[in-house]
């Protein structure tokens, strides 16, 4: 069965660290980074990249639209 793998790319400088994406992720992939961006906000990043399925939920609730989602099928 083909497995779906996903990944997100966060526009770090536009992320405001509101953390709305964190509970939206069913796989609990996203966390806030310890580092801050140019504005002083902790930005979102993929803590568990292997678990991401590219379900788009995080990108859809992101108020600033900083998340781009990629998804591909992997032949197991």
């Amino acid at each position: 069965m083909a497995k779906v793998k996903g990944a997100i790319v966060v526009d770090i400088e536009k992320c405001k660290g509101c953390s709305v994406c964190i509970p939206a992720c069913p796989q609990e992939v996203i966390l806030l980074a310890k580092e801050v961006n140019g504005k002083g906000y902790q930005y979102a990043y993929m803590e568990k990249p292997d678990a991401c399925t590219g379900c788009v939920n995080c990108a859809i609730v992101c108020p600033d639209g900083v998340i781009t989602v990629y998804r591909t099928k992997v032949e197991a």
């Binding site: 990944a7 590219g54 781009t68 989602v69 992997v74």
Partner: peptide
């Protein structure tokens, strides 16, 4: 599979309009 192989323009499923 490496993340770099997933992050390709043809695999985009959602981006800011």
């Amino acid at each position: 599979m490496d993340i770099k192989d997933i992050i390709k323009p043809e695999n985009i499923v959602y981006q800011k309009t």
